[in-house]
Design a protein around this nucleic acid. Sequence first.
DNA 1: ATGCGTTATATTTGTTAGGATATAGCGGGG
DNA 2: CCCCGCTATATCCTAACAAATATAACGCAT
Lengths: 112, 112
Amino acid sequence: MDYKIKSRIWIEADGKILLGEGRVNLIKAIESTGSLSKAAKSMGMSYKKAWSLIDAVNRRAEQPVIILSAGGKGGGGATLTPYGKSLINTFETINQNCWGFLDEQITNVEQF
Amino acid sequence: MDYKIKSRIWIEADGKILLGEGRVNLIKAIESTGSLSKAAKSMGMSYKKAWSLIDAVNRRAEQPVIILSAGGKGGGGATLTPYGKSLINTFETINQNCWGFLDEQITNVEQF
DNA sequence: ATGCGTTATATTTGTTAGGATATAGCGGGG
DNA sequence: CCCCGCTATATCCTAACAAATATAACGCAT
């Protein structure tokens, strides 16, 4: 049979989710579009949900991750801070390592 | 800050969840109580939900995992098959290994 | 001033997952 | 033959979540 083993990791701060796969994807879309609303639309996500996710990330992180600004050139926009960049980098490397580790584990089990 | 990294693993069969932490816990409760309804109650879960979870597990596994029987001695009951036993064993060992691996990963990151 | 494209927030509506409840069926034992 | 405790399943109801819509505020540019 084609059993597959999957995983999901996330970072918590005082018991609440700070960063998970969905938020990381959203943040990467923000980085490439420069706008929260465009990022949300590109992912088929409502603006409201995207905003509340980013708000949660910013309030729970020890330093700002995304800077949102309304008004000004181009109407405003969203930018990823260097701290945010390093945060999602470590998240993604650990995530990849985890997948690799699980692939190893599977090969050691005849059941799969 | 007290960032913590958490993980969740599960086994899929043709794109659908076969076994995850919640189902494993339910199965273990079944094993110790000998009854699906008692197991559900002990976990504060509705019988309906417990039944549909176990039904999904049995239908997606290549061999039966839990045998349910209505009527007879004691009114019936639920028993874990040897195949099911080995399945949850491998799940739990891989899960533990994954946690240990992630703990290692954290120590290599100054951000935590 | 006015326009523009954003962020920010409230309100209303719709959808879906789960709980609660009720009832039927099963099969050995007294 | 009926009682018991369990499995099996349908129906209704509620509550949480998501979507949709509307509106305001912001600040640079023209």
